[in-house]
Design a protein around this nucleic acid. Structure first.
Lengths: 339, 339
DNA sequence: CTGAAAGCGCTAACAT
DNA sequence: ATGTTAGCGCTTTCAG
């Protein structure tokens, strides 16, 4: 057999017809005779002909590729998002190219250049923590490549966004704690330079205010990992007036707090209730299983990609940016009291 | 400005020279005068020229893209692997295209076709659980596309593989159980058509043999997910002579078994010890924390991609297949007894 | 030192 | 109903 893959030319030569006839036969063009079509299709099948997507891209200036820049792949939320992206993209006939920024701005720049070179049809981005300059995104746009940001967005750039409703989620979590009788609720929070951290803390405060509970400075601690929770939770429990509930910014932090609380001989949820943002596998397997806020990463991926595909199909870069919000929902398990 | 991105032609026209001169100038070809080079480079920079990777691919029949087919992205092990893949690929100048099979054979076929169409330079595959036919992989290879399989490999296909040392890992896990006094060890196993499943079971048996413990058919159950463990563990515990240890094929299965065992009022590890393959977040947060085998997904990704890039660069499809093994290591936590 | 031409695989306008 | 031609962006002989 010939080296490399079969081309239309190969088929044309074998059948003694022209390449364009083969091309048309393959697309079931009405002009082509049934006989020719049959011959072409048979040979294409026998020889395992696969259209060369590269040639198609070059010709049509459409790569059918969506690029994704993501801070980190090894992360339940982000991998869920990718999974959603991959699904919609695939269904719409797009392939997905993945780039990890590893939270590095420089790397993100590189990725944007690669995306430009690859002539992707559209880009999905969750920004790195370091990113404070957005020219690389503007450059993509000025080259006719639509972008949809998700989760880590920036509001300097008027762009399409898909975000999780952090405020409402945090609010409902804290409301649930209050509804089940908690009065001194601690918050293990994310760094406040991230919008996500701000919004979750705002939701927490708002719920306290609404229920006429005091906001106690000492009950809010920057703490957003399992290991950090192991270190910092004891301080909370050793307070003169310890909390009767903890709202943690993610599930691993909640799991860390839970483990410390149990080591202290306290019962969950009888003595202390716990809720974590972000529902992953972890919350199902702790003992007791954690009440959490489901973050619907998959849905974020779906929504962002649907929006992006729409933008690509429109083909008009003069659109009015849209921000879509994906709701969270509370999953009540065993780490909070029953009403 | 012109619509779409800047091309060599645009630059040539502006400068009143030919496209080939621009091309040569851009690559610092010795024939070109310094003056011309400077002019070209200056304009290229000013206009933000980016070589069109699609055109390059078409011309060179090299896409600089590596395709990855993976059963599921939302999975600690697999996302770790992808992260490793992305790192090496990026360093070697390749982009990464991701395809999820969702454990579906049909989907895997689709993915292979897409890979073929995209003319990727090489492919990394971890097979779906359903896959028992390998023609789609053979087709990739016969089209000159090297493949490296990782983790979920098959030995019907003589191919490059990067695997976790399932046998040795399983052996050491069971040996650890025996060393800590267990004598009736059950095995919650993966399907046996997967090499991974076979090897883990072989390691289990070998450890029994080596320690002169009987192999009991009824103690080996096909069970490889949290939910399945919830259903099947009770059968184990209800046996006339229940096991005193469980070796589970992955951590979620171990977590499921643990949860059932606790519901039965049994103590871990006093009554029953548990070890799970695959160390992820889950094993750290169960109560007691699970003793596990660390699987080094990132390293699997690195090794597999290094190998693949070598194969691509060699450009010769007549190579002698290699199987690389990434060692596991036992992480002793609280679900097994102390020696 | 530079340009013209051909070709990578495919399609579509324009012939016949 | 089919063939010819041109061109997507780029590189690379081959000719000046």
């Amino acid at each position: 057999m010939r080296s490399g893959q079969v081309t239309i030319k190969d088929i044309a030569k074998e059948l003694g017809i022209s390449a364009s006839t083969v091309s048309r036969a393959l697309k079931d063009h009405p002009d082509i005779s049934v006989k020719t079509k049959e011959a072409v299709n048979a040979l294409a099948k026998a020889w395992n002909y696969k259209p060369n997507a590269v040639a198609l891209s070059l010709r049509s200036s459409k790569s059918n590729v969506i690029g994704v820049i993501i801070p980190e792949i090894v992360h339940h939320f982000f991998s869920s998002v990718i999974s959603g992206i991959e699904k919609i993209a695939h269904d719409a006939g797009y392939n997905v190219m993945i780039f990890q920024s590893n939270e590095s701005f420089k790397r993100e720049l590189d990725n944007a250049q690669a995306l430009l070179s690859s002539r992707v049809d559209g880009v999905l981005v969750s920004m790195s923590k370091e990113t404070k300059d957005f020219d690389h995104f503007r450059e993509l746009r000025s080259n006719g490549i639509p972008i949809v940001f998700f989760d880590r967005i920036c509001n300097e750039l008027s762009s399409d966004n898909v975000i999780v409703d952090d405020f409402a989620g945090a609010f409902s979590a804290v409301q649930h704690l209050i509804d089940t009788g908690c009065k001194r609720i601690a918050h293990l929070s994310a760094p406040q330079h991230m919008l996500l951290g701000q919004n979750r803390q705002k939701g927490y405060r708002q719920a306290l205010v609404k229920n006429k509970l005091p906001f106690v400075e000492d009950l809010v601690i920057k703490c957003d990992s399992f290991d950090e929770a192991i270190i910092k939770t004891p301080d909370l429990l050793n307070m003169a007036e310890p909390p009767d509930a903890i709202f943690a910014v993610n599930e691993m932090t909640a799991a860390g707090a839970l483990s410390v609380i149990k080591k202290f001989g306290l019962k969950v949820p009888e003595d202390i209730s716990i809720i974590g943002f972000t529902d992953g596998l972890v919350s199902r397997v702790t003992d007791p299983a954690l009440t959490t806020l489901e973050q619907h990463g998959h849905e974020v991926g779906l929504k962002a990609t649907e929006l992006l595909v729409d933008r690509i199909v429109e083909g008009n870069m003069d659109y009015e940016p849209v921000t879509k919000v994906v709701k969270t929902n509370l999953i009540v398990r065993e780490s909070t009291k029953r009403i």
